[in-house]
Each structure stands twice: as structure tokens, then as C-alpha cells.
Amino acid sequence: MRRRPTIKDIARRAGVSESAVSFALNDRPGVSAATRERIRRVADQLGWLPSAAARALSGEGSATVGLVLARPARTLGVESFFLQLVSGVQEALAVRGLGLLFQVVEDVDAECAAYRRWWAEHRVDGLLVVDPREDDPRPALLAELGLPAVIVGAPGAGTVPSGAAISCVRADDAAAMASVVDQLHDLGHRRVAHVAGVAELAHTRRRIASLRAEAARRGLREVTSVTTDYSDAQGAEATRRLLSGERPPTAIVYDNDVMAVAGLAVAAERGVSVPHALSIVAWDDSALCRNTHPTLTALTRDTAGFGRHAAEELIALLDGGPARWVEDAAPRLMARESTAVAPGSRRSLS
């Protein structure tokens, strides 16, 4: 575990007093130009950055936890999942008087850079980490920095270093996908498509693997998954490609509500009746799913509660508790008007 460099460390390395370091770094008179330059050079070598708060300088902590979201901001404007998640996080943090520092970045490299900057500036006491990946550099970095963290979702195998102060709060995506395949199979669907999220995410890979495994177990040979960036634009484009094929699916599962609504619109534009010619299922229920026509069958869960549980686990780590893995309630399928018996199936003919 790395320790944040302090003014005392800089003073020791530069061979000057702590007050001289303070004068130099705060651009105050009291030291010569040469000494000021030497102190700043040493500070750069040690990776020192000014603290965001006086409390951090005194070693009392920042009373803040961080959350960085590495997704294009344009994909977040209409998706309710993260808003609900953050509301649950904030509910738990408010009980302890903790603040939430939130940032949106373009990719994981920028996310890691934000972690390093926050660590050096004493901005956060711990982190909530979302969208775990299969080959994820973030847990190792957090272990190196010594920042307590909670991963929201199951991390990729072997990505969390042994002994790190990193907990995990997850729900069983594979079981949730199995429940969807069960329902669609019972309705006679044999051609099922999955409009998935970002390919690098661990939960995307688990959902794709679960779909394939469940399809193989039932002898379903016409099953496919396509990955997207979660946006309505890519969800719509994926739907157009699927419906333009020689043997289009009779059911499509979407990895969020926004893409499912976009897919419903594409079906209407092409004259494909939902649910009589095409069944649609959305991952993560929302007001969008409940207020479309037809209403959308969806996997539902207490997303705010999921965020609250993750924040509570982080608070437990900050209080000195052990790192642990917590299984949250799995999403359950809520059948609505967008799913029905597959066209041409024995059930529809009986």
C-alpha cells in the first residue's frame, strides 16, 4: 500500500523546513527562488498534489467517497439505472454525513487517472467502482494506492488482489438471464436475440454466456447476441439489422430500458407487431417500460437499494471492517404486454 506524500516528506527529501515547503508550494515569500524551484521539483518527483481540504492535511480524512463513471456522457441522459443507483448511494452516505464526488470520463484509463489524482489530493476516503471488466486494471491500482473500495457487480476472475480492502456487492446476472430464457422458451420462442451492452464489461459477458448455455440446454440453435454502447441509437440500429435478416428473431432481450424502447419504435416503423410477431424484454425496469404501449416485460429489482447496500459496505470498510463479497437480490422477471406466444408455435396454434 502506497502512502500519500506529505509536506514533511518533501521537507525531508529537499533538506528544508516544513514551513519553507509550505511557503514554496503556496507561492508565498520567505524562500529564495532556487529553494522554491528545488522544493517544487521534489514535490513533483514524489507525486504530491495540494489537498482538497484542510481536514485531509491534518490526517482526519476528506469525509467524501468517489464514484467515476467511464461511459460517454451522451449515453447517460435518458437511462434511469445510474440515477436510481446514485440516489441509493446518497441515502446511505447522508446517514454518516459523507459526501459523494462524482465524475464522468470517456474510458478506464481516464478513470484510473482520476483515482490517482484524488488519492494524491486527499479528495476521497474510499471509492465505489461500477462496470467491472474481465481484464480490469482498477482493483490492482486501488490496492496499490490503499484506497478502500466496493465494486458494484461481480469483478472478472482474478482481478481483485488478495488482501486488498475491496468488497463486492453483486446480483446474479446469469440466473436472471436464465429466467428470461425459461419464459421465452415456455412461450414457444426458438429464435432469440440479445441486444447487449458494452462488450468489455464482465456482466455483459456473463449474460451472453448464460444465454448461450441456457439455449444449448434447451436445444435452441438460433440464438445470437450483439453488443452496443447502451444508447438508444445503437439499440435501434441493432434491432434494424436483426429484423432485416432472413430468419429474424421472434424475441429480443435488451440490456437496458432505453434500447428496449428504441427497439419497440423500430418494430413499429417496420410494421412488426409487438407482441404478436415479436416479443421484447428489457433489463432493469423503469418508468419507460411501464409507460410505453405495449408495456414492456422487464427484469426488475430495487436499484436504489442496490446502491444503498454498496454504500453501506463501503462505510463498513472505512470503519475498519473486513472486505467481503455480498450477494444482492437477483432481478426478477415482470411479465407485461410486450411478450406473448411465439408466432407459428404449437402453443399459438392450439
Rank of each mutant, 00 (worst) to 15 (best):
M1Q: 10
R2D: 00
R3Y: 12
K8L: 12
D9G: 04
S19F: 15
L25I: 13
P29R: 00
T35I: 08
R38C: 03
I39M: 07
A43Y: 09
L46P: 08
A54D: 11
R55D: 15
S58D: 14
G59P: 04
G66Q: 04
L69H: 14
R71E: 14
P72A: 02
A73Y: 14
A73W: 07
L76H: 08
V78T: 09
E79N: 14
S80E: 15
S80C: 00
L83W: 06
S87Q: 14
A92S: 07
A94M: 12
G97N: 03
L98M: 03
L100R: 01
Q103S: 15
V104Y: 04
V105D: 11
D107Q: 07
D109P: 14
A113G: 15
Y115M: 15
R117C: 13
R117I: 13
V124M: 11
D125M: 10
L127M: 14
V129M: 09
D131M: 11
P139V: 06
L142H: 02
E144K: 03
G146E: 01
L147A: 00
V152S: 09
V160Y: 00
S162Y: 02
G163I: 01
A164K: 06
I166S: 07
S167N: 07
S167F: 06
V169Q: 05
D172W: 01
A175Q: 12
A178H: 05
V181I: 14
V181D: 07
Q183Y: 13
R190L: 00
A202Q: 10
H203Y: 12
T204K: 04
R207N: 03
I208N: 13
E214V: 05
A215C: 05
R218I: 00
S225E: 01
T227Y: 00
D229C: 00
S231W: 04
E237P: 08
T239W: 02
T239I: 08
P248F: 05
A251E: 06
A251C: 12
M259D: 10
V261C: 10
A265C: 13
A267S: 02
A267C: 10
A268N: 05
G271C: 11
G271V: 01
V272F: 04
P275V: 00
S286C: 08
R290W: 00
L296Q: 11
L296N: 03
R301H: 07
T303P: 09
A304N: 08
G305L: 11
G307T: 13
R308M: 02
R308Q: 13
E312N: 01
L318P: 12
R324Y: 09
P331G: 02
P331N: 05
S338P: 00
V341A: 13
P343M: 11
S348P: 06
